[in-house]
Structure formats: C-alpha cells, structure tokens
C-alpha cells in the first residue's frame, strides 16, 4: 500500500516534468541539436582521418554518439532539481505529506522518458548518415535498453550533485568537469587501443566504454578485423555495463535521497 502510494506520488511528479517537454519544445530541439552536429562533424569532417579496421567509421561512431547523448541527457536531472530548489518548489514538495522518494523517482523517470525520445531521434539521424543495425531486432532492443539503463543510473549521480550544489548555473559547470572526461577518455569516438598507455587504462575501465562497446556489439557494429580487447570490462561489455548500473544505483540512490532530506532552498 505504502509502495503503491509512493509510486503514485512519483508518477504525479514525473507527469509534471513531462508537461515541461511538451510546453517548452525548444528543450528537446536543443538537447538533440548538439549531438546531431557531433554526428555531422565526425561523420563528414573528422571521420575521414579516423581509420577503423574492417568497417566504415560512421558505423563505429553511432554507438559512441548514443552514449554521449544519453549522458548529457541525464544531466537534466541535476539541473532540473537545482532549479526546483532555487525556485522553492522543493520546499513546497517537502512540506507535503507525499512519499519522500517521489521527487527523485519522478524526476529520474521523466528524464528517462526524455532520453528515450532523444535516442530515437539520434537513431534516425544515424540511419540518415549511413549507420545500419546488423543484428537481430531483439539484440538491437537490448542495446537501446543498456544505454537507457546506464543513463537512468547516471541520472541518480546527477541528482546527488544537483541537490548538493543547489544552483543550476553551478551545476552546469560542476557536471561538465565530470561529464567531459568520462565521455571522451573512452572508446566513444576512437578505439581505446590507440590511446597512450595511461589514458588507455582509464578508457578501458571507464563505464562509458563498456556501455558504448555493449551497444556497438548489440547493434552489430563491430568487425572481426579489430584486435580483441585485453581488459576485462571490454571483453564482457554487457556484463560490465550492468555491473556499473548496479554500482551507480547502490552508491547514488542513497546519497541523493540523503541529500534530498536535508535540501533547503537558500
């Protein structure tokens, strides 16, 4: 009964956030504009100089673009919460007899829906520039699921940071410091084997690399001509991705909840 009530409260909050996507469509336009420009930049400008054995660079690129896009999409969780905090909306929620988890559950859920929408738009973009799925529909679906699961878990980390810094402007700068290396010191745009040694180790153990490779494999965007990776997470990318999802949730769900209970607008 209590759980049902909590879920109902969470869905009320999620609905509120989703109305924003509908009323402010620019948000969706601009959150997809940057990744679309990345696709064009890498497909037509840098792509010609990046050699991927056994396949066209665009096929290699798209999984990295998806991972990058959902990571940036997950930051909305943090900036949204920080904004609600400065506007006093969190204060109001906290004075209501609603489930304590509802604001965070609702927020992360609506951001997941937003991310799913963005992934669809990016997949269409990919198809237009020549990316193809070479696996079964079920595997492709699993690839999308892993991307979204990871984004969901990542949302909780962003929620924690957003509640911690309490201001949307500070959050945008703070999250960038975190997002930038995790997105680019990885196999998202280049093969991690080509990186210099220290960066290469970081890239191989970077959660984003596991997720990108998992998506790449599940979409069938790999080639037998590529050297087999020698790091464990890249040998078992699906398992490693799921492991990271569990770790992120175990760490950041309690941290975000703890921070929410103490959150007070300033």
């Amino acid at each position: 009964m209590k759980l049902l009530q909590a879920l109902a409260d969470g869905s009320v909050v999620a609905k509120r956030n989703l109305i924003k996507i509908k009323r402010v469509p620019d948000l969706l336009v601009f959150s997809t504009a940057a990744p679309i420009m990345f696709v064009l930049l890498f497909a037509y400008v840098f792509g010609g100089s990046i050699e991927i054995p056994g396949m066209d660079y665009r096929e290699f690129l798209m999984a990295g673009i998806f991972a990058q896009t959902v990571l940036f999409g997950a930051t909305i969780t943090g900036s949204g919460l920080a904004e609600d905090m400065t506007k006093g909306i969190i204060d109001r929620f906290r004075s209501l007899p609603m489930a304590r988890s509802a604001v965070l559950v609702g927020r992360t859920t609506s951001d997941l829906v937003n991310n799913a929408l963005v992934v669809v738009i990016m997949m269409i973009t990919g198809l237009i520039v020549g990316w193809r799925i070479h696996s079964s529909p079920l595997e492709a679906l699993a690839g999308v699921a892993i991307l979204l699961l990871f984004a969901y878990a990542f949302s909780w980390a962003m929620a924690w940071i957003g509640l911690l810094v309490r201001s949307p402007e500070v959050f945008n700068n703070a999250s960038f410091i975190f997002i930038f290396p995790i997105t680019y010191i990885a196999n998202t745009f280049v093969q991690s084997e080509k990186l210099p040694s220290v960066l290469r180790h970081i890239a191989e153990w970077n959660p984003v690399s596991a997720v990108t490779l998992a998506a790449r494999e599940l979409f069938g965007n790999t080639s037998p001509l590529q050297a087999p990776p020698d790091a464990w997470p890249l040998q078992h990318p699906v398992l490693a991705s799921l492991g990271w999802v569990v770790i992120f949730l175990l760490v950041f769900v309690p941290l975000a909840n703890y921070q929410y209970k103490r959150a007070v607008a300033r």
């Binding site: 509120r16 109305i19 924003k20 009323r23 402010v24 506007k87 006093g88 909306i89 204060d91 109001r92 004075s95 607008a265």
Partner: peptide, 12 residues
C-alpha cells in the same frame, strides 16, 4: 506553507 518565493511551476 506559502513561501517567500511563489513556489509554483512556470510551465504548468
């Protein structure tokens, strides 16, 4: 509770 800043959602 009605606070110092009107805690209403602009988009709703």
């Amino acid at each position: 509770l009605s606070g110092q800043y009107a805690a209403v959602d602009d988009n709703l």
